[in-house]
């Protein structure tokens, strides 16, 4: 890999970062749902997976094992996840030989890879959703440093309701403040599980932690997403949850989140035109 100096995120309209200090709160799932919801509204959407040690996006959108093509200029062509070519993906998983391959890299190598991911992809999208690994370290600092010149809307923070997770997300908020990134709001994920047999709602990981954090930090609370085994199954099998369970509470919450993030949808604008 040669030194990369190209422009950052060319061909991208607006960028949304999905962050969380904590792992396993559903950053990748939220990334996919945000992207799918935007796509459903008629936008062309890209997902950039900068989780180098644990890339999950290709599996979740059903493009595991695909190869990345290269343009004549040497840029990577993102992998399309749909026939309409409105959802495209770049992840390090596409460059690994097998799914057991581990990326055992220290910081500087990860930074070089991230720089390349930010500058060498031939995007053609309205929105780019960037999925990040947990923490506030190399990957995050590198993304923030390099993304400054690109049109970034801001960051969506994902948490689960329990305090142990909220602690870490609180740290991520401090990170956003210190690096000057706009916080678009907080999503509380895995909030409540409705028993399929008796409809009793259990707050497995407590409830309300995300909303309290949003109030305390004076940022928008975007929504509370319940646990839905159908969603887990869809992300496992790489199926589009939004198409299969359009009327589910989870889909509604995401529609509402997207409404708060981008306002009017494109179809309505097209009617006006």
């Amino acid at each position: 890999m040669a030194a990369v100096t190209g422009p950052v995120l060319q061909g991208v309209g607006k960028t949304i970062l999905v962050l969380s200090g904590k792992g396993g709160v559903g950053k990748s799932t939220a990334t996919v749902q945000i992207a799918a919801t935007l796509r459903g509204k008629g936008y062309r959407v890209g997902i950039l997976d900068v989780d180098l040690c644990g890339p999950s996006i290709p599996r979740m959108v059903g493009v595991e094992g695909k190869d990345v093509l290269t343009t004549p200029e040497g840029n990577w062509v993102p992998v399309y996840a749909d026939n309409e070519k409105r959802l495209s993906i770049i992840s390090i998983a596409f460059f690994l030989d097998s799914k057991t391959d581990a990326v055992i890299w220290r910081g500087p190598k990860k930074n070089a890879m991230i720089k390349q991911l930010l500058t060498s992809v031939a995007w053609d999208v309205d929105y780019l959703i960037v999925d990040t690994p947990p923490g506030t370290s190399d990957e995050h600092i590198s993304v923030m440093e390099n993304i400054k010149s690109a049109p970034v809307m801001g960051a969506v923070l994902v948490t689960t309701p329990q305090m142990v997770a909220v602690d870490d997300v609180n740290r991520e908020l401090t990170f956003c403040k210190r690096t000057g990134i706009n916080v678009l709001g907080i999503i509380e994920n895995m909030s409540g599980f409705v028993c399929p047999s008796c409809s009793e709602c259990s707050n497995i990981l407590a409830t309300g932690g995300g909303e309290q954090l949003a109030a305390k930090a004076k940022v928008s609370f975007l929504g509370r997403v319940p646990i839905d085994p159908n969603l887990v199954r869809c992300t496992e099998e790489g199926k589009n949850f939004l198409d299969m369970f359009a009327g589910s509470p989870v889909s509604e919450v995401y529609h509402n989140i997207i409404y708060q993030l981008v306002g009017e949808n494109q179809e309505e604008m097209e009617v006006e035109n």
């Binding site: 028993c195 008796c198 009793e200 887990v232 199954r233 099998e237």
Partner: peptide, 18 residues
């Protein structure tokens, strides 16, 4: 698995699909 505290039904919230 998750055991519903009310009706004791076990649900695999994170199913072992593989």
């Amino acid at each position: 698995t998750f055991v519903c505290p009310k009706c004791k039904t076990e649900t695999a919230i994170f199913p072992a699909t593989t």
